[in-house]
């Protein structure tokens, strides 16, 4: 067979491109078209459904309600923000909410870091997936069920009282402490997982090297592990902090008479039927979170999300 015949045979063996192949070829040549097709569905959802709702809240905060009929009056006013600023009770509630979120975050860091370290560095690699599943498992149970389970445990004469009784102590009962405890329990997986991921990416040789250079384990933790997982800790705290700040159910179930931003919003939407004021209150956690994210961004932590 000479060369010419060979070439003809090859060309004939190749079928003419079908419509799917042609479409693929067009997409391959036009990266912008590819990007547009990929993003059109998410954007169609994100812009009206997500950002639209946020904008609506913000807009509503500048309206007011007719005190007589309860109807929303579409008239621009700063009255809601004025009330928030002037009434000391709202400042107290805002500060208390931030305090609760901070306490939950610190507790989750204190529990999550050793847990994540054990998972990533101590346990054998083959057993790690089971631990990840164990950490995730509580997330499969409904939120309300978990909160009510705690309500039962913390009830007067409940499990908490019974366990602490022999030590001459009693459970915290319903209130601020209970709220912090339950929130810390609920959001713990959101702290463990990013920290675990961060630690898993930390090469073992760095820990070896630190010990090799004479550092005891605590020193290695302070000088190598903590600085290296700091961005992951911040990433986890973004979850625990924002979820705590927005929560209104836990505080209703175990918080007793405690008021946080979340249930103030809830009460104004429901009982008080003052949607514009609820919207104004709701802007507080948004602003706090934006400030928090801006601070987190400076640590480089957002690249860990």
């Amino acid at each position: 067979m000479d060369d010419d015949q060979g070439l003809t045979a090859v060309a004939a063996a190749r079928p003419a491109p079908g419509p799917r192949r042609r479409a693929a070829a067009v997409l391959h040549r036009r990266p912008r078209l590819r990007l547009t097709l990929l993003l059109s569905a998410p954007l169609a959802w994100l812009v009206p459904g997500y950002l639209g709702a946020l904008a609506a809240i913000f807009l509503t905060a500048f309206w007011t309600t007719d005190t007589f009929t309860g109807e929303v009056v579409h008239q621009y006013t700063l009255a809601n923000f004025q009330t928030l600023w002037d009434e000391p009770v709202y400042r107290t509630i805002a500060l208390r909410s931030v305090g609760v979120a901070a306490a939950v975050t610190l507790i989750d860091m204190a529990i999550g870091l050793p847990m994540a370290f054990a998972m990533a560095k101590v346990v054998r690699p083959r057993r790690r997936p089971y631990l990840v599943v164990a950490v995730l498992a509580p997330l499969w149970a409904p939120y309300l069920v978990k909160a009510y389970a705690w309500r039962v445990m913390l009830a007067h004469g409940g499990l908490a009282d019974e366990v602490l009784g022999p030590f001459g102590l009693s459970g915290p009962g319903y209130g601020l402490t209970a709220t912090v405890l339950v929130l810390a329990y609920l959001w713990l997986p959101y702290m463990i997982l990013p920290v675990y991921t961060g630690l898993e990416r930390l090469p073992d040789s760095l820990l070896d090297a630190s010990g090799d250079l004479g550092a005891r384990p605590l020193r290695t933790l302070r000088a190598v592990v903590l600085p290296m997982v700091f961005p992951s800790l911040v990433a986890g705290s973004v979850f625990t902090f924002s979820l705590s700040l927005g929560d209104y159910i836990t505080v209703k179930i175990v918080g007793g008479r405690t008021q946080l931003l979340g249930n103030v919003v809830y009460d104004n939407v429901g009982a008080a039927n003052n949607l514009p004021f609820a919207a104004a209150v709701a802007t507080i956690p948004v602003v706090v979170m934006l400030a928090y994210l801006a601070a987190a961004r400076r640590t480089g932590a957002l690249r860990e999300l």
Binding site: S205, L206, D208, A209, S210, G211, L213, A215, R216, V224
Partner: peptide, 20 residues
């Protein structure tokens, strides 16, 4: 004895420099 009590030092295959 643990590594931090031995009078040896190691040059690691991946260098193991502290990135931070």
């Amino acid at each position: 004895l643990p590594p931090f009590e031995r009078d040896v030092n190691t040059v690691f295959q991946d260098y193991a420099l502290f990135p931070h």
